[in-house]
Design a protein around this nucleic acid. Structure first.
Length: 1050
RNA sequence: GGGCGAUUAGCUCAGUUGGUUAGAGCGCUGCCCUUACAAGGCAGAAGUCACAGGUUCGAGUCCUGUAUCGCCCACCA
């Protein structure tokens, strides 16, 4: 790689738009990202949390991937054989929904009209497009993934891992068929997962209905009252429940409240007391009626379900809560998970009333064909007409909406494949408890353990087309047929180890949309289902199975199933590949907290099951990025930031450094968002109001620009305003500072000649900067190794800016102009910059590489003691060793003295408004040692503060007209000659004296407290005494100065 | 309902095991286009560390409670 620029003609800005793609392409051409398991080094592995191919990456991804690349790059420099495994996730429902929606919008087609194969082909096209875009974004961010190994959760390698795992679990008996309430999206006609459902509070009603009792006996109620927020579901009711022991349940409820009362805060007590009182009132007024209803239930009394005129039983079940409502609850087993449980316990039939498109089916009798909303109205009206509507309350209801289609979710029960979690979860919990998997920050381990501790079986089937199709062939078999089929299949499985079978018990309550009523009596018919799982798509076996009437499940697996295998499927498992042997288990997983359970826990569980070893030893959970209002960023809200907008404006290094700078141990990070006017670059604060506008008029230049909401042609033709955050300015400015410091170095290293340097040639500032550098290297390394990214970024920032640039480089300006000092100065400069670049490289890879290349041209041989040739790329340069011998607290303390005097001089200059070019004279009253130390620094006072020293030592006489700054143990006295602003100086000193008095008073009272003097550690007490002495001396000196000034003023 | 977290300068955030006078960046004020950098330099103003108790010789830091905000999980006939 060559650059034709000479150092003097380097631009004063790093041109990231030009340089970054060039550098990235060069890294790739040199194979610097490639991981090779045959190399004799220690492995360090990270698997990327595969981004969904749903769309482009957002700022959360930018954070996540920056943090991974930072670690990867440091480890690579530390000599590890480093693999960062890239890839993307097929993201089941999310991707299918996006493609389906486009299909509808652009071609007005549904997926059923297009057909399964064609739809899947469309989604593959979408995937190719977005995978390319995502990988492009990662590359622009500088991510050093081994791209040759890029995987996709639906590719052949991953598919094989999925098949193998599913088959294995199936054979172990850990996969079974069961019922689960699904969130049915009637628009997309598919089930959606819980995390794709958002709950909104809407105004709704709570209806109280009365169901007539069939043939009430004397003294019995004629009606039973129930309440519901979803009246139309009454068409699917198959019972009304009453608690089997209302008195005991009331006692239990009261005991529970009493227990809470003992722990409750004062504010909550009133409410609890009210509730207790309500229960007591119920015991007095309602208990007899409830017990009567219970007796009726036990006696087998039935109710007449109105509108469809279906007799339904009154059942006794503890799900009914006597402390709530009427004490009776309607039971709709096909549309409510709790009701389903009741149905199971009481042997109730299930009546599904819903078609897949959200209209009511034949089970709804006269309401068949109506939409839910229409049916709801009519059910209420019809019940009212019958005089069975007892009351209507207004109530806020949490209504579930599908994130994908924005339509209300309808819950109903469907057959699903489940994974038994008991043993798998226990193993995954142990891995964390025993710290074989360490979660950082540790507080997140609790959520992981709690979630796994519930051991809720994992429903893994989805009614989708995009995903790994479940490799199970099934048939419902009548009792008569069972024995012969069993014999056939059993023989087949014995002959073929890649086939395994399972009977599903006498379960005839399967409910699918549109299914007819399944009566309780059917259960006795003992129709069982036979399931055969195949490890491979072996055409002969499939043909055989199909000839026997088995059909493959149309369903696909939950997308998290394939994600759970990611750490080993990407390495080629179930093959024992060299990669798997070498790189598994991986080193660390870096992700955000919202998928600790969905993903992290399942990876641990599957890794343990498939390989007997957890997939990683550490999990780092990074913060979440919120907008300026503390809301999560999302494209649908309009407050999301595209990392490419940030890269365009600030550059990829600034994006990464900014991300690291934000990554503290907190769980959230706020990032106020601005629009950038494309005409005048003004930043316009994004508000909740303007973030949804299609166009915005720039308040500065008045010109309009488009936002992501631009829909009509006129708006779309406008220039688009980027959405950015000024929180990246710090990082951008830092990169610029570094670039210019490097420019200074390059300009002054033109005659660099590598020669050994001995310690006695080093000046105070050399020793100081080397000491600081060693400390910073140590701290930055420790910080990055323990995921304290912000500490690393801040430490390096402070050193580079405040110490290297503001002091060391400034001081070099003198020495470089002296021929006899130039060579040593150049050596230390080149060395310091070299080490600093290497420390910064993981954070800001592009700019450090560019400088590294340029530095290599003027100073190819660097090193503190003996010159050494440097690496071709900074990526392969060794990580700086911590040079403990260079750490010198004494030198740092001495340098601090110099800095203090310099600061005092600058303060006086500024206070007195002395023109910058006008030199001043000063004296320092201090002890002899300090004087000896500071005397050689005279040239620096001249160049850095425009101040010439006229005297040093304990007995210097103050100049006639002075301004003074009193430091810890010395006075800096400036001769102000004719330009003193006496009044200003008096005011300043008065203020200072007052502050000193306050501090002295504080210290004195502290030291006068016997308990402090007696009980605090001696060193602390001594420190207070020393401080008091020093403050008193400062006060005396300040008063003397004041007196002098007042004389002058008079 | 359960859990987790936050509250420090106008804004965004640091603040190690409790111990001198609580820091940074942005913004603000003043001076400077000083030959690496105006995306810069020098200096300055700005804080009742959310509130109330407690522990301690000593609390931004530890404990309890309150308020506000946020996130996760569960549930709501």
């Amino acid at each position: 790689m060559t650059t034709s620029l000479s150092p003097e003609s380097l631009p004063n800005r790093f041109d990231h738009a030009e340089a970054c793609p060039r550098l990235y392409a060069w890294w790739q051409s040199q194979d610097l990202f490639a991981a090779d398991p045959s190399r004799d080094r220690r492995p360090f592995t990270i698997v990327i949390p595969p981004p969904n191919v749903t769309g482009a990456l957002h700022l959360g991804h930018a954070l996540n991937n920056s943090l991974q690349d930072i670690l990867i790059r440091m480890k690579r420099m530390q000599g590890f054989e480093t693999l960062w495994m890239p890839g993307t996730d097929h993201a089941g429902i999310a991707t299918q929904a996006v493609v389906e929606r486009r299909l509808k919008e652009e071609e007005n087609l549904t997926r059923h009209e297009l057909g399964r194969d064609a739809l899947v082909a469309r989604i593959w096209q979408w995937k190719d497009q977005y995978e390319a875009r995502i990988i492009g974004q990662l590359k622009q961010m500088g991510c050093s993934c081994d791209w040759r190994r890029t995987r996709f959760t639906l590719d052949d390698v991953c598919a094989r891992a999925v098949r193998t795992t599913f088959f294995d679990l199936f054979r172990q008996g850990l996969i079974y068929r069961g019922k689960r309430l699904v969130n049915w999206d009637t628009f997309l006609q598919t089930a959606v997962s819980d995390d794709e459902v958002s709950h909104e509070e809407v105004k709704g009603h709570f209806w109280h209905f009365r169901y007539p009792v069939i043939d009430p006996r004397p003294g019995e109620p004629t009606h039973v009252t129930i309440a519901t927020t979803r009246p139309e579901t009454m068409l699917g009711d198959t019972a009304v429940a009453i608690h089997p022991d209302p008195a005991a349940a009331l006692d239990a409820a009261e005991a529970n409240l009493q227990d809470r009362l003992t722990r409750a805060a004062a504010k909550e007590r009133g409410e609890l007391l009210e509730q207790i009182e309500a229960i007591r009132a119920r015991r007095r007024t309602m208990l007899p009626a409830l017990e009567q209803l219970r007796d009726m239930a036990l006696a087998g009394r039935r109710l007449m379900l109105p509108l469809v005129d279906r007799p339904i039983p009154l059942v006794a079940d503890p799900w009914a809560k006597p402390e709530l409502g009427s004490g009776c609850v309607k039971i709709t087993p096909a549309h409510d998970p709790n009701d389903y449980e009741v149905g199971q316990r009481c042997g109730l039939p299930m009546v599904n009333i819903l078609n897949p498109d959200g209209t009511l089916n034949a089970n709804a009798g006269p309401y068949q064909g109506q939409t839910i909303a229409a049916a709801r109205k009519r059910v209420v009206a019809d019940l009212e007409a019958l005089g069975l509507l007892e009351a209507v309350e207004d109530r806020l209801i949490e209504l579930a909406h599908s994130d994908r289609s924005k339509t209300p979710i309808e819950p109903y029960l469907a057959d699903q494949w489940f994974i038994k979690m008991d043993s798998l979860a226990t193993a995954a919990m142990q891995a964390v408890v025993e710290e074989r998997v360490r979660i950082v920050p540790q507080r997140y381990a609790k959520g992981y353990l709690d979630w796994l501790g519930e051991k809720r079986d994992w429903p893994v089937s989805r009614q989708l087309w995009w995903g790994h199709q479940i490799p199970v062939w099934s048939k419902r078999v009548a009792a008569a047929e069972r024995a012969s089929l069993d014999r056939q299949i059993r023989a087949l499985c014995e002959a073929n180890p890649a086939a395994t079978m399972q009977w599903e018990g006498a379960d005839d309550t399967a409910v699918v949309p549109g299914a007819q009523t399944a009566g309780a009596s059917d259960q006795t018919a003992a129709v069982a289902s036979l399931h055969v799982c195949l490890k491979q798509d072996d055409p002969t076996t499939i043909a055989t199975l199909e000839s026997w009437g088995l059909e493959r499940s149309p369903e696909v697996l939950d997308t998290w199933f394939s994600s759970a295998l990611w750490p080993h499927s990407t390495l080629g498992w179930p093959e024992r590949t060299a990669e798997l042997e070498f790189f598994y288990p991986t080193s660390v997983l870096i992700t955000s907290r919202d998928i600790i359970t969905l993903w992290v826990a399942r990876m641990v569980l599957m890794g343990l099951n498939n390989l007997g070893e957890a997939p990683f030893s550490e999990v780092f959970i990074h913060p979440k990025i919120l907008d300026g209002y503390g809301e999560t960023m999302s494209k649908s809200k309009g407050n999301g930031i595209d990392p490419l907008d940030v890269i365009d404006k600030f550059g990829p290094d600034a994006l990464r450094f900014g991300m690291a700078h934000l990554t503290t141990e907190t769980q959230d990070v706020r990032m106020p968002v601005q629009f950038e006017c494309p005409h005048c670059q003004t930043l316009i604060e994004q508000t909740k109001k303007n973030r949804e506008l299609p166009r915005i008029d720039c308040p500065k230049c008045g010109q309009p620009f488009a936002t992501q909401w631009a829909r009509n042609g006129e708006d779309r033709d406008l220039a688009r305003g980027a959405v950015v955050s000024e929180r990246f300015e710090v990082a951008r400015n830092f990169c610029n500072k570094l670039w210019n410091a490097a420019r200074f170095a390059l300009i002054h290293l033109d005659d660099y000649a590598p020669a050994p340097v001995s310690d006695d040639q080093l000046t105070l500032e050399d020793r100081w900067v080397l000491s600081r550098l060693a400390t910073v290297a140590e701290q930055a390394t420790a910080a990055l190794e323990s995921y304290r990214y912000a500490d690393a970024a801040r430490g390096l920032y402070d050193f580079a800016w405040d110490e290297f640039c503001s002091f060391y480089v400034e001081m070099l300006k003198n020495r470089l102009s002296h021929a006899d000092q130039r060579a040593v100065a150049q050596r230390i400069l080149a060395h310091t910059l070299d080490v600093l670049l290497r420390l910064l490289h993981p954070l800001i890879p592009f700019i450090t590489e560019e400088i590294w290349q340029l530095l290599g041209r003027v100073a190819p041989q660097r090193g503190l003691v003996a010159p050494q040739p440097t690496a071709l790329s900074i990526m392969t340069a060794p990580w700086p060793q911590v040079d403990a011998a260079r750490q010198d607290p004494a030198i740092e303390a001495q340098f601090a003295r110099f800095q203090a005097v310099l600061g005092a001089l600058r303060e006086i200059r500024s206070r007195q408004n002395i023109p910058p070019k006008r030199p001043i004279e000063f004296a320092v009253r201090c002890d002899d040692r300090t004087a000896d130390l500071l005397r050689p620094m005279q040239p620096y006072f001249l160049t850095m503060a425009g101040a010439a020293a006229i005297a040093w030592g304990p007995n210097v006489q103050p100049p006639a007209t002075e301004a003074a700054v009193t430091l810890a143990d010395m006075d800096v006295l400036v001769d102000l000659k004719d330009f003193i602003d006496v009044a200003a100086e008096i005011a300043r000193n008065e203020k200072l004296a007052q502050r000193l008095c306050e501090q002295i008073a504080g210290k004195e009272s502290k030291l006068a407290t016997p308990s402090f003097v007696d009980r605090a550690p001696a060193n602390i007490v001594q420190r207070e005494r020393d401080a008091l002495t020093q403050l008193s001396e400062q006060l005396t000196a300040t008063r003397a100065v004041l007196e002098n000034l007042r004389k002058m003023g008079a």
